Computed example of a mutant assay.
Amino acid sequence: MIYPIVAYGDTVLKKKASPVTQGELDVKKLAEDMFETMYEANGVGLAAPQIGKSIRFFVVDAEPMDEEKLVGFKKVFINATILEESGEEWAYQEGCLSIPGVREEVTRKSVIKIHYWDENWVEHTDVFDGLAARVIQHEYDHIEGVLFTDYLSPFKKRILKGKLTGISRGVARADYRMRFPAK
């Protein structure tokens, strides 16, 4: 099932998501649906709040970023907690399926240590670096109620204000179905 992507301005995107309890939902089906939704929108990550579900669940498949290290990097993260962020800070231009047409440089640490469960309820604590870490950090922010635009300077936010307001009102171009809060 392909879900519509929730657009900037919807309150679900700014809310800290609730933990998932084992057995409460079919996490394998949800993961399958989220991957399908993400691929339809040409994304590399998708968090449950972006489909209107305020739960601590996200998927990533960064292989399309065309970096050798990311070949086969497809994962499901349930109830994730970033334990540590370390390494060099580096800037990279990020975008978001919930904020179509907006890309800005965001600075993040290059290495993360994260604790999570996968779609089989197997517990993991892993370390990721580079683009893999960045994709995870971006999606993790979604379950914390944080958007990449929250990292921008006040000046940059002022410049983007009209565009972001337009997105929340349904004035956005996307090649995928969206759900707009002001419509």
Score class of each variant (00 low, 15 high):
Ser153Cys: 12
Val44His: 04
Val20Gln: 11
Lys157Met: 09
Thr37Cys: 08
Tyr8Gln: 03
Ala132Tyr: 03
Glu40Phe: 08
Phe35Val: 04
Ala80Arg: 05
Ile136Gln: 04
Ser86Asn: 11
Val12Ile: 07
Val12Asp: 09
Ile159Lys: 00
Phe35Gly: 14
Ile55Ala: 04
Lys16Gly: 01
Ala48Val: 01
Ile136Tyr: 05
Thr81Asn: 14
Phe73Arg: 02
Val44Asp: 02
Glu123Leu: 03
Arg179Met: 10
Val146Phe: 12
Val71Leu: 08
Ile167Leu: 01
Lys53Thr: 00
Val59Trp: 02
Lys75Phe: 03
Ala172Thr: 06
Glu40Ile: 01
Leu13Ser: 02
Leu83Glu: 14
Val60Phe: 04
Val60Gly: 09
Ser98Arg: 11
Ile2Val: 11
Leu25Asn: 14
Phe180Glu: 02
Leu46Ser: 02
Phe57Gly: 12
Glu32Cys: 07
Met34Cys: 13
Tyr92Cys: 12
Val171Cys: 06
Phe155Gln: 15
Asn120Thr: 12
Arg158Pro: 00
Thr81Lys: 15
Ala132Ile: 01
Glu40Val: 00
Val171Arg: 11
Tyr176Ala: 13
Pro49Val: 01
Asp66Tyr: 12
Phe57Thr: 05
Asp141Asn: 15
Ile112Met: 00
Ile159Asp: 00
Tyr176Trp: 14
Ala47Pro: 10
Ala31Pro: 14
Ser54Asp: 07
Phe128Thr: 03
Ile136Asp: 05
Phe128Trp: 09
Leu160Ser: 13
Lys74Tyr: 08
Ile5Gln: 03
Leu97Gly: 08
Val59Asp: 10
Met34Lys: 10
Lys75Gly: 10
Gly101Asp: 11
Asp61Trp: 08
Val146Leu: 11
Arg169His: 04
Lys69Ser: 11
Gly101Val: 03
Ile2Gln: 12
Arg169Gly: 04
Phe57Asn: 11
Glu119Ser: 09
Asn42Ala: 08
Glu94Leu: 08
Pro64Asp: 10
Tyr39His: 01
Ser86Leu: 06
Thr81Cys: 12
Lys29Asp: 14
Met38Asp: 07
Leu147Cys: 03
Glu144Ile: 02
Pro154Cys: 09
Thr125His: 02
Ala48Gly: 01
Trp117Asp: 04
Val171Glu: 12
Arg173Ser: 15
Arg56Leu: 00
Glu139Gln: 08
Ile159Ala: 00
Pro4Asp: 03
Trp117Arg: 00
Gly9Ile: 01
Ala62Gly: 12
Glu63Phe: 09
Arg169Asn: 07
Gln93Gly: 14
Gly162Cys: 08
Lys163Val: 01
Ile51Met: 07
Glu68Ser: 13
Tyr116Ser: 01
Lys29Leu: 15
Arg173Val: 10
Glu89Val: 12
Asp26Lys: 00
Glu67Tyr: 13
Ile114Lys: 00
Lys183Pro: 15
Leu25Thr: 14
Val27Gln: 05
Lys183Tyr: 14
Leu70Trp: 08
Phe58Ile: 02
Arg173Leu: 15
Phe155Leu: 15
Lys28Asp: 00
Glu94Asn: 08
Pro181Val: 04
Lys28Asn: 00
Ile51Lys: 07
Leu46Cys: 05
Asn42Phe: 07
Cys96Asp: 10
Gly9Cys: 05
Val111Trp: 03
Ala133Trp: 07
Arg108Gly: 06
Ala132Ser: 04
Gly9Lys: 04
Thr149Cys: 03
Asp175Val: 04
Lys113Ser: 06
Leu25Glu: 15
Asn42His: 08
Phe58Lys: 06
Arg179Leu: 13
Lys69Ala: 13
